[in-house]
């Protein structure tokens, strides 16, 4: 009998598999086709202070082994998330959730994180300082060590729950940014958000996405994500939630060997709504095949 449990800042998960924010809504579409209580946790749709429509469509473009999205943080706003979405989520998912919070100013991060911190359902706050699809916010906080540290410090000052900073891969030195977050008090690091990209319509000679650029996710980005998780693992001592192109149980093991304690599954959910379930089911036999008794033993095992 293998042990798939992992622990993030004192929160023990039955397994390391967490659907990534923005690919799982608030869970109920998926709860229609499987019991989502099997998940380690789930990171809900990125939430901002105000309701947001997001970007104009088209917001989606296909790529070799992946996709671009430029959704732009569409969400109902923190009031509705707390009043409506979390109670609905509670009906279908009975474990602590990862609350993904985004913002356009430090004040907004502070307000939203402070409020979501009060919610009993929330196990971890994942602060998204890396959304590539919004202007004057999002990623701009995550591309310098100073601003990443500043958001971390101010959010930590108003929260009691573990705070994980979600970092962008669109930087020259991700380890330096992770270190700055750790020094500012971050309890963990989530990475990677999507890689900025674009596609062009040959017939119409215009970008496919109305936003021009979007974030690349899917198997195409797995090697980049692994490299960055590897680098951040060498640079910090707090736990890492690794993500980027994870689609199979093998990818989960690879991500953990690179240094991740838990793993988020993103674009794979969109292609196959049963992806997270299938990964969780395939983990134990794969662990047996690889001679892994306790999954937490392999974290950073390739270093």
């Amino acid at each position: 009998m293998v042990d798939t449990k992992v622990t993030l800042s004192g929160l023990t998960l039955d397994n390391p598999v967490i659907p990534a924010s923005g690919t799982f809504g608030f869970g109920y579409e998926f709860a229609e086709i499987y019991d989502i209580d099997i998940l380690g946790s789930l990171s809900f749709k990125g939430t901002t202070r105000e309701p947001r429509f997001g970007n104009p469509t088209p917001r989606i473009a296909e790529c070799p082994s992946g996709m671009l999205n430029a959704v732009g943080l569409q969400n109902p706003g923190i009031d509705k998330v707390i009043e409506e979405e979390l109670p609905k989520l509670r009906q279908v998912f009975h474990k602590p959730v990862v609350a993904n919070i985004s913002g356009f100013s430090i004040d907004e991060y502070v307000e939203c994180c402070g409020r979501i911190d009060q919610e009993e359902q929330v196990g971890i706050i994942e602060v998204n300082i890396s959304c590539p699809n919004v202007h004057n916010g999002g990623m701009s906080f995550g591309t310098s060590p100073e601003s990443a540290a500043e958001v971390t410090r101010q959010v930590k000052a108003v929260t009691t729950k573990p705070v994980y900073m979600k970092l962008s891969p669109n930087v020259t030195d991700i380890a330096a940014i992770a270190q700055a977050c750790e020094e500012a008090g971050a309890d963990g690091i989530s990475l990677i958000n999507t890689l900025m990209g674009m596609r062009i319509d040959l017939r119409r000679r215009v970008p496919v996405l109305k936003n021009v650029t979007g974030g690349l996710s899917g198997p195409a980005v797995l090697p980049v994500a692994l490299r960055m998780v590897w680098q951040v693992y060498e640079a910090v001592s707090v736990p890492i939630i690794g993500m980027g192109g994870v689609s199979t149980a093998r990818d989960v093991i690879e991500m953990m060997l690179a240094g991740a304690t838990a793993v988020e599954v993103g674009a794979a959910n969109l292609k196959n709504p049963l992806a997270a379930k299938e990964i969780i089911e395939k983990l134990p036999p794969l662990m047996e095949e690889l001679g892994i008794g306790r999954l937490s033993d392999i974290i950073g095992g390739a270093h």
């Binding site: 923005g22 690919t23 799982f24 809504g25 579409e29 998926f30 749709k45 429509f53 997001g54 469509t57 088209p58 917001r59 989606i60 473009a61 996709m67 999205n69 959704v71 569409q74 959910n269 969109l270 292609k271 709504p273």
Partner: peptide
């Protein structure tokens, strides 16, 4: 243009 087709990704709002 859709991402998932079942309401998860907000790609077609």
């Amino acid at each position: 243009r859709m991402g998932c087709g079942f309401g998860a990704c907000m790609g077609c709002t």
